[in-house]
């Protein structure tokens, strides 16, 4: 995983609340392998019509926001199905950060496992930021994970909270399985005790 310390990149405001993972990655793409095409599945049914023509009014299709790497989304972003493909599609499309007033829990979890930083900000801050980005000709945003700051040139500046452990993993680009395997001894010791205490769970 690529370490994430600071991102200075274009940010795209996507105002809709409750954008669920079915819309981020429609179910028919779930069975697809993760290859070069994966990024084209992102928001597929919001960005393309039935004839697969580009819907130009969809904000991610607007020239100004092309190459955005930060998404500023609505409440409860990524709710719904647990599909990690929704995160794959965002990451493969270049996104490294999503800012929203709240997230679907599983989506939030999955993000960290793929080097995508989910940031929770107050609703009014998110809306303020979205409005600035709409007006901005060059909608750039600075997200500084090290100092936990979001900064826009309009003067918008806010700090954000993040679990320190997860922050560390993102900063260092650490893979989870390797990290846990350090605790193998503890795990084995735990299991021994556990199976003694709950023998009906030790069989099989």
């Amino acid at each position: 995983m690529e370490p994430l310390v600071k991102i200075l990149a274009k940010a795209v405001p996507l105002k809709q609340d409750n954008l669920d993972t079915d819309q981020i990655l429609p179910a028919r793409f779930l069975m697809m392998p993760r290859d070069e095409k994966y990024k084209t599945y992102l928001f597929r049914d919001l960005s393309h019509d039935e004839n697969q023509a580009i819907i130009s009014s969809f904000i991610l299709n607007q020239e100004k926001f092309s190459d955005a790497r930060i998404l500023v989304a609505g409440r409860n972003f990524g709710c719904g199905s647990s599909r990690e493909g929704a995160v794959f599609a965002l990451v493969d499309s270049g996104f490294r950060c999503v800012i929203a007033p709240s997230f679907g829990d599983i989506f939030y979890n999955n993000s960290f496992n793929n080097g995508l930083l989910p940031i929770i900000l107050e609703k009014q801050h998110v809306e303020e930021l979205q409005n600035e980005l709409f007006l901005d000709l060059n909608p750039e945003l600075l997200v500084d994970l090290e100092n936990q700051i979001v900064l826009h040139k309009s003067g918008f500046k806010t700090t954000f909270d993040i679990d320190p452990h997860r922050r560390e993993r993102l900063l260092r680009g650490l893979d989870m399985i390797g990290y846990t395997q350090q605790y193998l001894k503890e795990t084995e010791k735990f299991e021994e005790q556990y199976f003694l205490s709950y023998p009906w769970l030790s069989i099989r």
């Binding site: 990690e84 999955n110 496992n113 399985i177 795990t187």
Partner: peptide
């Protein structure tokens, strides 16, 4: 509870989850 693909691989590999 439900988990994503990375967590699934983590559970398969370690039988644990953070």
């Amino acid at each position: 509870f439900g988990i994503g693909a990375s967590d699934v691989s983590h559970v398969l590999a370690t039988q644990t989850l953070w």
